[in-house]
Amino acid sequence: MDESRTIDILTNKSTDRHILISFHMNGRMLELSVEPTMRLIDIIRGQLDLTGTKISCGIGRCGACSVMMDGHLVNACLVMAYQVDQSQITTIEGINTNNQLHTIQKAFLEEGGFQCGYCTPGMVMAVKALIYENSNPTEEEIKEALSGNLCRCTGYGGIIRSVQRAIKEGMNKN
């Protein structure tokens, strides 16, 4: 992760109930004055205008808002501002380096692991979380890792082929 020390302070109209939180967003340190119970998804999409992370069910049941928090996959709709303080958040915008597609993104592109694309950023994050922990997962492990990410278009066929390809390419690299 990029450890640049830039600190962006986003000025909001502070009220006495606001809290100041600081966290790393895709490698950049941010400070924000927000309602403590604001959802992380609203910080990401609303405050920071990073719209790659999507919102669909709002109750952690679809995975469209999946992001990484301290290296773990989380639903941004279930995490609140006060919990984000001092954490490292990575969104879909933060996973490719030097404008190159990540191996997983490339695999999704080539294998048709998406159609409407709305679940795709969350799905890519879930695959990343899987492969980060387990570079050669079994069929069961793939299924479990993606069980919280719903896709309505593909029927998961293209997604499974994408994951298999990403695993293969990842292993070829090593």
């Binding site: 915008e93 048709g112 692991g113």
Partner: peptide, 21 residues
């Protein structure tokens, strides 16, 4: 072929109409 709208979808760069401000 990959889809013309593919790269923007897998990177999250594509702006859906509900993403607009």
């Amino acid at each position: 072929r990959v889809r013309p709208d593919g790269a923007a979808k897998v990177t999250g760069e594509l702006k859906y109409l509900t993403d607009l401000k």
